[in-house]
Design a protein around this nucleic acid. Structure first.
Lengths: 223, 223
DNA sequence: TCAAAAGTGTTCTACCTACACCCATGT
DNA sequence: ACATGGGTGTAGGTAGAACACTTTTGA
């Protein structure tokens, strides 16, 4: 077979390749997503997902972590990250240059975020979004969908819990993500049977009511 | 904020961006995957997934379809296609150039393939793969995993059934994909309750046994 | 003693699994 | 009449959903 069957990779322009990150946390009893204010055209001044172009020698997950660090002021080590989807259908997404975007979504525990210093990210409710740049609103909605699926079929909600917590606190996190109330008894039954909790034999005294048992997770990595 | 915060998209080399396709069909009571023989280094002569570099103005799904057409000799209209994952961690995947690969997987009904003329694709058993180029073996295994999940939680196996078929034929397709036997009564109960089959009120006479009822699918697109 | 959240079991239902025999045909 | 695949129902187990009262504390 002759040369004309080769991909002429050196002979045509390559699209730009970017990574955007949908970063979630739970704060003020709400699911928040970290957004930046764009400083460039197009969509100058609009809120957008933090992102970054993929450098030539950079693994794409590294690009995602760099975007978190540089655009979001968040330490990547404290973030659970998973690839969501790659968007490259709508050629008009970025008017500067034709760009394909690999989107990751992530979870951070809210007390790992410096809400004072890191004024880079605007933490907006994921359930009440203003108009965003590009198709980022659709992307966030898709990320919520995947996050819910993941929470329901695995045991990784602990990504956004502190080291020690009570069952009621864990239940609240589930309720915020799933956006619906959970039955207390069924919830506890389900969680206990996962055998991922360690009873710390401590009580959390808080308020004028019976103190709650304190737990930690046995393992510290999502499966 | 000043210029140094801009992504210097014009100031650094972009990675190459490619699409590979894992194309499945069922033939000879086996799950087959369509592979091409590489005509370039690296891995010259090895079998690999059909793929193509993304052109500057080409939506990525179009790239996948072009790869099917040009590298595989398969009409894209007859293929169900879904994005699988984007691989861009291992920088040594392609020794010519640093490349990120968006992988799609697809299903074709086997009688839409011209096995004579289309000698471009080698239809290898997905369950007994020879050594392949790059990390394509791992990718195919991941695609099988997703295919099984998709088949179990949706009703899209009809993507690889002909227009008219019997319940036993459909069951065989499921068994090949899931790689395990299904109970005949339970299988029929499940399928009937999906209400996606139309009884064509015909009988398929074949062999020395009771003739089978012939069905078609009510809708013709995967959800 | 009251308010407020923690903690705890049982029943019902829906779905999945396992399993065995008769039916219609060609030879 | 027999071999071959087509076609059918029931019983048991499991997982999830609904549901209400007692306990422990601080004020």
């Amino acid at each position: 077979m002759a040369k004309e069957h080769l991909d002429p990779i050196h002979n045509f322009a390559r699209p730009g390749l970017a990574v955007d990150v949908v970063l979630f946390t739970i704060k003020d009893h709400d699911l928040k997503v970290g957004l930046i204010k764009r400083e460039d055209d197009p969509y100058l001044g609009k809120l957008a997902l933090p992102g970054r172009f993929v450098r030539y020698d950079e693994p794409i997950e590294t690009t995602a972590k760099e975007a978190l660090k540089l655009k979001g002021g968040v330490k990547p080590e404290s973030v659970f990250l998973e690839q969501l989807y790659t968007f490259g259908q709508e050629l008009k997404r970025d008017t500067r240059i034709r760009t394909v975007t690999i989107v990751y979504y992530g979870l951070v525990e809210s007390n790992k975020i410096d809400f004072q210093k890191s004024n880079l990210l605007h933490w907006n409710s994921a359930y009440d979004l203003p108009p965003l740049a590009f198709d980022h609103k659709k992307i966030i909605e898709y990320a919520i969908h995947r996050l819910r699926k993941k929470v329901q079929e695995s045991d990784f909600a602990f990504q956004l819990m502190p080291e020690e917590f009570t069952l009621s606190e864990l239940q609240k996190a589930y309720e915020i993500i799933l956006n619906e109330e959970q039955d207390k008894r069924n919830f506890r039954k389900k969680i206990i049977e996962l055998h991922i909790l360690k009873d710390l034999k401590k009580k959390k005294m808080e308020g004028a009511h019976r103190p709650a048992a304190v737990y930690s997770f046995i393992r510290n990595k999502a499966k």
